[in-house]
Simulated scan of single mutants.
Amino acid sequence: MTAVDDLWYLADTASQQAAQAYHRLSERHEEYLETSHDERVSRRRFRTLARRIDRFGAPYGAHTLVHRPGEVLLCRHEGVDLWVLPGGGVDAGETFHETARRELAEEAGVDVRYDGLGLLSRVEVRCPGHRTWGVLPVYAARAESHDPTVNDPDGEITAARWFPFDDLPDDTRDRSDLRAWFERFGRE
């Protein structure tokens, strides 16, 4: 007897949750940059991400694009060996905005004033024979304090630093999205 592959069902319900999350976010916010990303993953990773999407609508939680004139705050994430925006997974009962705030406090510890949603990405996730999608909300926030302090309970974030938008490290995740956001909104 063969086992029934439940990934098709999980992928379908995850896509429905993503659509609901997308509509809630797009109805609450007016000006933001929309982007999309396509990820091909293993079957095991697909199941993990689809479960997150099914639960929260998002495979990677929520993030914050912290900026000050001409610069963005990035965190060094050792797990992926990249400079990334502060952010992470949603906890039960949290909104995306609450997640972004909590993760920013843990990973960079700067005080900010949130401007609203800065980026809304559609993340397509695929493995052989299956596909789903989720949202990645990135809130924009102006820095009110400027000295980052890492206090990451997971130990994944080892540094937080300011970088000029026009001179981001080569190993910056979503580098083109950050530059596009700056060109559209950061020069105001």
Rank of each mutant, 00 (worst) to 15 (best):
D6V: 07
A18Q: 00
A19M: 08
E71Y: 09
S42N: 11
F165E: 11
S15R: 10
R45E: 13
A141T: 02
E98D: 09
G57R: 02
E107C: 04
H67I: 07
G129K: 13
E183Y: 10
G129Q: 11
V135W: 02
L136A: 13
R55G: 04
G134N: 01
F165V: 12
G89V: 05
D167P: 03
A143M: 03
E78C: 10
H77C: 05
V138H: 00
D170W: 12
A141F: 00
Y32I: 06
S121W: 04
A143P: 00
G70H: 02
R47G: 04
V66I: 13
P86T: 01
S15G: 13
D147T: 14
G93V: 00
D147I: 09
A100I: 03
S26P: 04
Y139I: 07
A18S: 09
V41S: 02
A92C: 05
P137L: 02
T2I: 10
Y9G: 08
A108N: 04
L178Y: 08
L49C: 11
L49Y: 11
H37G: 13
L49G: 06
E27K: 14
G186T: 02
F182M: 01
V90F: 00
R161L: 12
I157C: 03
R40E: 12
G129P: 07
F185N: 09
L136M: 14
A11F: 00
T13C: 10
R187Q: 15
R43P: 02
A105C: 05
L10A: 08
T64V: 14
A62V: 02
F185Q: 10
Y139G: 07
Y9S: 15
A105W: 07
G93R: 05
R131E: 13
W162Q: 06
T158R: 06
E183Q: 14
A159K: 06
L136W: 15
G88E: 10
A14W: 03
G87P: 07
H67M: 08
T172R: 12
D167T: 11
D115L: 12
R51D: 12
V4H: 14
W8C: 12
S121V: 01
F163K: 03
A19T: 11
R184T: 09
G87L: 06
E30G: 10
F165L: 11
W83K: 05
R101S: 06
D167G: 10
L74R: 05
D111Q: 15
Y139W: 12
L120I: 08
D91T: 06
E27V: 05
P153Y: 01
L119M: 13
H146Y: 13
V112K: 07
Q20Y: 02
H97I: 13
G70I: 00
E31M: 11
P137I: 03
Y32F: 14
P69R: 11
G129W: 08
Q16K: 15
G109Q: 05
R24K: 12
E27Q: 15
Q16F: 08
V90A: 04
A108D: 05
P59S: 00
G89W: 05
A100L: 04
A14I: 03
F165H: 15
H29F: 04
G89N: 13
L178Q: 05
R184V: 05
R47V: 10
P59I: 06
P137R: 00
D170V: 11
D167H: 15
L25N: 06
D6F: 12
A3Q: 14
